[in-house]
């Protein structure tokens, strides 16, 4: 039985136009994914293809006007906005994408400590250990979120995701953009270690090259639909083994490959 199974998920938004007139937009039409224990699934696709919404739908943090269709199963149990509460932050950990998820008026070290277990001295020790693990300096903890650069912020978000011994699934939403190579490797290695300990990892990203370093399988999203789901090994130098045209295009247009000539 897969750890997480998403079947035919759709997400619509019920929006108001002028006055009382309403209309429905459907950014996610049909997404299906599956993650097993200890497996890393990379979810790639254009911005606006519904990658982040998928994570938000699983975590039950969509805005109030969202309408969710299809089914999400965690270890065989159907989950929805209400039942996710008992897994959220425990069995399922979430690393958000946006820096807006940090409290702007609180030193980052204190924000990280909030979620950690134990008494104060243990939490301080744990937080400093986490910072070290992600290549953050001890003095960085005294900064406020606005003083952090994009890459540092990502790493701080990582440390706040509270991966605990109970965690069985980690959802990381774009953990890599704006981050430098050495920091990137740290983050990727961390995810790999997490997966090796038997935790399922969903890595949402548009950085295919980095994702391929650790991913077992790749799911490609386009316009709110899953267009391709293939093993990571299919992505080879020239992309000839990629059958789906969109996937092949995505692969070839990378700056490491043909880049502009692919267009």
């Amino acid at each position: 039985m897969p750890l997480l199974q998403v079947n035919n998920l759709s997400v619509s938004f019920d929006q108001y136009g002028r006055g009382l007139e309403r209309f429905v937009t459907t950014p996610i039409r049909s997404l299906s994914i599956e993650i097993g224990k200890g497996e890393i699934l990379a979810v790639v696709g254009a911005s606006g293809s519904g990658k982040s919404l998928l994570a938000h739908a699983i975590m039950g943090i969509l805005p109030a006007n969202a309408i969710v269709g299809g089914e999400i199963k965690f270890k065989g149990n159907l989950i929805d906005e209400r039942s996710i509460k008992k897994y959220r932050g425990k069995q399922i950990a979430f690393i958000p994408q946006s820096v807006n998820y940090l409290d702007p008026s609180m030193k980052v070290k204190n924000q990280v400590r909030i979620g950690l277990p134990g008494i104060k001295s243990e939490r301080i020790e744990k937080q400093e250990h986490l910072f070290e693990k992600f290549g953050l300096k001890k003095s960085d903890g005294d900064l406020y979120p606005f003083e952090l650069s994009g890459g540092m912020m990502r790493r701080v978000l990582f440390t706040t995701s509270m991966i605990s011994p109970d965690t069985e699934l980690v959802i990381a939403d774009e953990p890599t953009p704006g981050i430098h190579r050495s920091a990137l490797d740290l983050v990727l290695n961390q995810l790999k270690t997490i997966a090796d300990s038997g935790i399922g990892v969903m890595l949402i990203t548009h950085d295919i090259i980095s994702a391929l370093k650790i991913a077992d399988r790749v799911s490609v999203f386009k316009d709110g639909c899953t267009v391709d789901d293939i093993p990571a090994s299919f992505f080879s130098a020239d992309g000839e083994s990629l059958e789906n045209e969109y996937t092949r295009m995505l692969w070839k247009s990378l700056p490491e490959h043909s880049f502009m000539e692919a267009i």
Binding site: G45, S47, P177, G178, S253, L254, P255, A262
Partner: peptide
């Protein structure tokens, strides 16, 4: 400044092509 960092590869390549 990190003009295409948030974009997917296809969009990135086509935007750079246009700008260049």
């Amino acid at each position: 400044d990190e003009m295409t960092t948030m974009l997917d590869a296809i969009t990135q390549a086509s935007i750079w092509k246009g700008l260049l």
